[in-house]
Design a protein around this nucleic acid. Sequence first.
DNA 1: ACAAAAGTGTTGGAGATACACCCATGA
DNA 2: TCATGGGTGTATCTCCAACACTTTTGT
Lengths: 231, 231
Amino acid sequence: MTVNRKLLHVSIDCVIFGFDDNQLQVLLIEQEKITKSHIPMHALPGDHVIEGEGLDEAAARVLKELTGVEGVYLKQFKAFGNPDRIKDPKDKIWLSHVRKNPEAHVITIGYYSLVKMNEISTMPSSFAKSAYWVNIHNIPPLAFDHNEIFEAGLNELKKDTETNHISIELLPKKFTLSQLQELYETILEKEIDKRNFRKNMKKNNCLVPLNEKQKGVRHKPAQLFTFKLDE
Amino acid sequence: MTVNRKLLHVSIDCVIFGFDDNQLQVLLIEQEKITKSHIPMHALPGDHVIEGEGLDEAAARVLKELTGVEGVYLKQFKAFGNPDRIKDPKDKIWLSHVRKNPEAHVITIGYYSLVKMNEISTMPSSFAKSAYWVNIHNIPPLAFDHNEIFEAGLNELKKDTETNHISIELLPKKFTLSQLQELYETILEKEIDKRNFRKNMKKNNCLVPLNEKQKGVRHKPAQLFTFKLDE
DNA sequence: ACAAAAGTGTTGGAGATACACCCATGA
DNA sequence: TCATGGGTGTATCTCCAACACTTTTGT
């Protein structure tokens, strides 16, 4: 194949965050095993952008194929286009099995997404043999520049949590203020004063109290809330 | 030409800001006139990314070809990939004259740049017949989705000015505090108190006073400063 | 009754805002 | 000497951080 010098591969990579068991987790995929000696790589879920497809659309497609969810928070955060990003020998072995022109320059657009872990179950897809959740502090070495993309996505999430309170999208529909606080403490990696935190949250009036309380806990049951996004 | 469904055009578009005469300006290009009836479009400077070239590298190339400057502030802010972005009839007429496959899906990466207007002079380049500066409030209708890209770049500059004080890069090497304040007021579109502004700037200690004062002004000459970036 | 987390207000300090006058120079 | 923009300090207010005890439920 002759490579047109002005046509490039464009892909999407998604940093999909979930929150469970008070841990911030990321969804990774394991590549298919190509040969007997091949050590499968781990990677962020991603796929090529198809001719005629918008970037947000492509990201939503990747997310839907892997998790089945639609309509969740999804945000573009950065484009990565360093020509060396796919030059690692271990990545090239894999590429040479799945691509016509493994040397091609691939640009990728990084997205991050927030999903409610209790509402999804991962499924096999065209680009992933298997998917699994991993704590953000136990990320293995990933294919290509995916570790860098992950770090950039995590930073974006931290920033947006402080400014937009967007991380609330990680919680189930009904949640307690303590769950919300633990989420913030996990993402921002710092302790927060309970009373000040509640003052802040109530000021942002994105919380709606429900006529419902926690049940089956052996302590004073907490008020449940749901959220409305800022109008 | 058969279009490979997984290869796309990727381009860079630059929102190049300058500050002169107390006005925030943007560098636009005028496309070549193709036919007698063709009305040349105005656009942001940009070019295709070449195989093997990094994104930052491509943006720096566009900037250098058009202005001759290197090493100035340049920041990626967003990728644009809506497949409709080049679908306007007036854009297609032009594309049909300069591209082999005018229907191709083009993804563009938006960068913004800050240049010192007194240190550069624009020059013709491979992608622009002529370039000119225009006040940010008098932007004409631009080709493709360039008006949207411009707005996104301007918003990014505003945000970065408040958080990073990066807009200082728009001033000449030596400047007075009043010039700096006028720059901030222009970008942020609000008035700022002189004493509070100076307190802030001194606190950020990115200003270095020079042993030099303004000359030839018919009032008390102002102290000149230069800046060092945050260490 | 006890263990466990829920829920709730006040105070002090730091940082932001508002504000007015004298100074150095060129014409 | 006058017109012009340069340069400076203080009082107030708002926002954020620190801090401890009572309540409700299950066992």
